[in-house]
């Protein structure tokens, strides 16, 4: 199973699309590793630069993350940068499926919880610990700490455990 712990990158905006996550001109790469320098290159978000990415392992964002193209290069670009977990109010369908298909996680939290996380932790160096069996995130910054239970469907859970859809499908169909 992949690593779902580490420091958080706060992206406080809705509708961050796949062209922003990884522009189409890099889709000519045929290895995942080659995508690493280009993650979020075209993201339109005040205060954000790609220099904020190194050292981060989790993204927290608003609504409809990953909308647009079907490119799995979006999860791959996250993966090769060490980011295996994205938390949002909701996701575009294909992006979310791609994440779990790769054994990564795109987890939905309700609007109030996301709101609270941004309010308490945005701007602070914050880390997350994921207890996958118990389905709980623990967010910590300085002396502050909160626990957030999460839900992942049984199917998505089995994909994470199997290490992705290919292994699952090869075994079952």
């Amino acid at each position: 199973m992949k690593n779902f712990n580490g420091e958080i990158l706060f992206l406080e905006r809705s509708d961050i699309n796949t062209d922003e996550i990884i522009p189409a001109k890099y889709l000519t790469e045929i290895t995942k590793a080659a995508l690493k320098p280009y993650l979020l290159e075209d993201l339109k978000l005040e205060g954000f630069t790609t220099k904020d990415i190194p050292g981060k392992s989790v993204i927290i964002t608003r609504e409809n993350f990953g909308c647009g193209s079907s490119r799995e290069h979006a999860p791959w670009a996250l993966e090769v940068n060490g980011i295996n977990l994205v938390l949002a109010e909701n996701f575009a369908r294909i992006f979310k499926q791609n994440m779990f298909n790769c054994g990564m996680m795109a987890v939905e939290l309700d609007k109030e919880t996301i709101e609270e996380i941004f309010k308490i932790f945005k701007g602070l160096k914050t880390s997350i610990e994921t207890d996958f069996p118990k389905a709980v995130f623990v967010l910590k910054s300085g002396g502050k700490s909160i626990s957030i239970p999460f839900t992942v469907s049984e199917f998505d859970r089995s994909l994470v455990e199997a290490g992705g859809w290919i292994n699952f499908a090869d075994k079952n169909y």
């Binding site: 294909i94 992705g164 859809w165 499908a169």
Partner: peptide, 9 residues
């Protein structure tokens, strides 16, 4: 539309 993993399967 699907990603590359779904396509592969």
């Amino acid at each position: 539309g699907v990603g590359t993993t779904d396509l592969e399967v």
